[in-house]
Design a protein around this nucleic acid. Sequence first.
DNA 1: CTGTGACTTATAGTCCGTA
DNA 2: ATACGGACTATAAGTCACA
Lengths: 69, 69
Amino acid sequence: MRLQDRVGLNIQELRRARKLSQEELADLSEVHQTYLSGVESGKRNPSLLVIERIAKALRVDPEELVRRR
Amino acid sequence: MRLQDRVGLNIQELRRARKLSQEELADLSEVHQTYLSGVESGKRNPSLLVIERIAKALRVDPEELVRRR
DNA sequence: CTGTGACTTATAGTCCGTA
DNA sequence: ATACGGACTATAAGTCACA
């Protein structure tokens, strides 16, 4: 499993746990909903900057997004 | 501290622990030495793909590279 | 609400040299 | 052994219309 798949699933899981829509999380993270969709499904290969913004929006340390599953 | 600074320091620490030069780790990771230099010093904003390759070369889970310090 | 494809612009990442 | 810079090329970021 590629790292970007793992991160995508972690993001999706945390987002759902917080009952946020992709649109809401995207706004909070200052990325587009369509881009977030691609990240969650592992189709995009985000940079650390994007990971950091999403982590902040989810109120977790970036470590959580990279966590083994 | 930005995520890319944290990751850079983690990489440098692990690389030194393994007594590898930047050149050696760069070759193993299939990135350029000059680029790795920039990553270690936090000047570059690598993608997950690169993080994954470096982690593999260092024989750690990518999680280790994102670990809080 | 979420995913896809197509697209442009920004920057990730290479390669050269040099110190 | 590492870092810096310039010039390049590959690909990520970011946006949109639509299903």
